[in-house]
Amino acid sequence: MMHNSKSKLLSMQKGKNLAKSSVSLVLRYILLISVGFVYLYPIIYMLLGSLLSPGDQADPTVKWLPTVWYFQNYSEAIQTLDFSHSFLRSLIVAVGPAILQTAVTAIIGFGFARFSFPLKNLWMVLMVATFIIPVDVTLVPRYVLYYQYGMIDTYLPAYLPSLFGQGIKSALFILVFYQFFRSYPISFDEAAELDGAGKIRVFLKIAVPMSRPAIVLSLLFSFIWYWNETSQFNLYFGSKLPTLPMQLEQFTARYEAIYGAATETSKALSNSTTLAGTALSILPVIILFLAFQKQFIESIERSGVTGE
């Protein structure tokens, strides 16, 4: 009798939990969809808006869906952005430094994680501090430095700092690698050393393969951040070697230089053309992200970004 009522109670509890969890699932979806809309809306707006023909733009009944797929905006935007050149420049500015930054921060992270040496704590603190120093503070002296060495209007200001572990958010990646190299047992290294492997071999053959997620994370984030960087690079080589986002910043001015300012004879730069330009400058990164999104998310979950 008692047993019976107990199991009844249990099944009641179960039913209650089930109802509760389905309510919370619905709530979760409502919240996620409504907030996710904030991120999706501009993207959808950009993609659909970039396909509106001049007729559709003038038509107040056309709000979202274009009546015809109009790709003229894209060809104008490609002209305005000088797409093939700018795209290549963006690749040069993003791929090289991303690889360099990953390799160098891994080496530095290994040094901090696996060796003890005098003043180590001081250097660690200073390294974290470099993350906090705003870009603006070192903007002018770096410019002067690059100017003195004749590096203005070359890609070197993007490459050099990353070669020395001072690239965009390098401190963050050093910390990620530091965490990672500390998290696997040191006995792995010791065993290899007993077998006669040197420190460099240990780093290359054990530490690096073990830190795959950190490498993926560093490569992807570095690529994205270098691709999107404009405020510093504009000053260093923006006038001679503008990347896609820099061209986008100057979009209106460039459009008018090519197609003429809005007069009675020539038409004004349309919102749709600007949107097409925006899409062109961001799509390469979005495609990369979608292609690697699984590795991207796994790398974050496994790379111990959080620390202990």
């Binding site: 991120y39 999706l40 994205i224 404009t230 986002p245 979005i286």
Partner: peptide
């Protein structure tokens, strides 16, 4: 995760 990817000054201001 889209904001991580698109967090670029010019694009954000245009969009």
């Amino acid at each position: 995760f889209l904001p991580v990817v698109i967090m670029s000054g010019p694009v954000i201001s245009k969009l």
